[in-house]
Computed example of a mutant assay.
Amino acid sequence: MELQSATIRNIQFAWSRILDIDEEEMADASTRTYRESRDSPLLMFVSLFGKGVLVGPAWAMAAARTLTDAQLARHSVLLELSRRPWEKPPSSFAIPCPRPPILRCR
């Protein structure tokens, strides 16, 4: 299905409002757009009509600059990027387990 150019512009306009970026910038598919959101813990990547937009904290933006849009579209990559550099990965956390009772036979 091929969309009409007016429909594409309307979709791009709506997403530019959602992502809080300039409408013209959303229409320019030649470069990826980065929008730093200091207060938000959210890391979001949107790819629309060949345009990639990454929204998130500065430390995640810096780590994402070397990645391609195809890489950023993968859940596992976004999950890894969303981990702050100073935090340990979730798999390294120890889960406290109570000691099993010692049974003695008489």
Results as ranks from 00 to 15, higher is better:
P96L: 06
A70Y: 02
E25G: 00
I18M: 08
P101L: 11
G50F: 00
R17M: 15
I21V: 11
I102M: 00
A29I: 10
L78D: 03
A27G: 08
K51W: 02
K88V: 07
S82M: 04
V53Y: 04
I18Q: 08
P101F: 07
D22P: 00
P85L: 03
R32C: 11
A62P: 01
H75I: 07
V46W: 05
A29F: 15
R9L: 09
I8N: 04
A58F: 10
T31D: 12
M1S: 09
R106D: 06
L81A: 03
R17I: 09
D20R: 11
D22C: 09
R104Y: 02
M61N: 01
T66H: 15
R99L: 13
R104V: 11
M1A: 07
F45P: 10
S5Q: 13
T31F: 09
I8K: 14
L42Y: 10
E36D: 04
K51M: 05
F45K: 00
M26G: 07
W15D: 09
P85Q: 01
F13E: 13
I21Q: 11
E87T: 03
I21W: 14
A73W: 00
W15M: 14
E87M: 10
L42F: 08
T33Y: 12
S5Y: 10
R35P: 03
R32V: 06
A63V: 01
V55D: 03
E36W: 05
Q71P: 00
E36V: 09
L81V: 02
S30V: 06
T33A: 02
T66A: 15
L103C: 12
S16L: 15
W15G: 00
L78R: 06
L72N: 04
K88Q: 13
V77P: 01
M26P: 04
P100R: 03
S16G: 07
M44W: 02
P41K: 05
E25W: 07
A64N: 00
L78N: 05
N10G: 08
R84I: 03
R84T: 02
A58E: 12
A27L: 13
V55Q: 01
S92K: 05
F45Y: 12
L3V: 03
Q4K: 07
